[in-house]
Amino acid sequence: MQDLNIVFAGFGGQGILFSGKVAAYAGLIDNKEISWLPSYGPEMRGGTANCSVCISDTPIGSPLVTNPNVLIAMNLPSLEKFIDEVEEGGIVIIDSYLIDKKVERDDVRVFYVPATKLAEENGLKGLANIILLGKLYKECPFCEEETIEKALLKCIPPKKAAMLDFNKKAIAIGRTQ
């Protein structure tokens, strides 16, 4: 498998760190080398949040992804911050319901998914992040088919176990986009 260097970026509260963790756990379950590194500090309190996730067959060097080959952007500042850094041929997935801007680069594969709107329409408020992860899985299967559910199970705290089905539905919706 090609090394995946993913940046998840958006506002604090959009579940950026969570969707990153699901991807990282999926890698772990499939016995890949993985790392997950969040941005941290004052910017996390309502400002922009992002996390770097690396999934590879070989040990991870720097867990800080400066040139992602996958960018998932959930707000405009995040898109603007990272779009020029995406590697040529990389995947860019944008929540087009929240970002009213087209990417000008033509050397990357861009997918516009109105994830926040889809989430609201399907009773999945707050799971736009997982819809986008589902889209990523469609464009770039980053783990075995049955691994996604296992990864979700690892990431959803036992107290919120009821959320599993909603998350699975969000993945499914993302995969149809």
């Binding site: 990282a24 993985i34 790392s35 997950w36 991870i60 867990p63 800080l64």
Partner: peptide
């Protein structure tokens, strides 16, 4: 350092 403290790894 902040990177090692904040990052998750298996």
């Amino acid at each position: 350092d902040g990177m090692l403290g904040q990052m998750m790894e298996p």
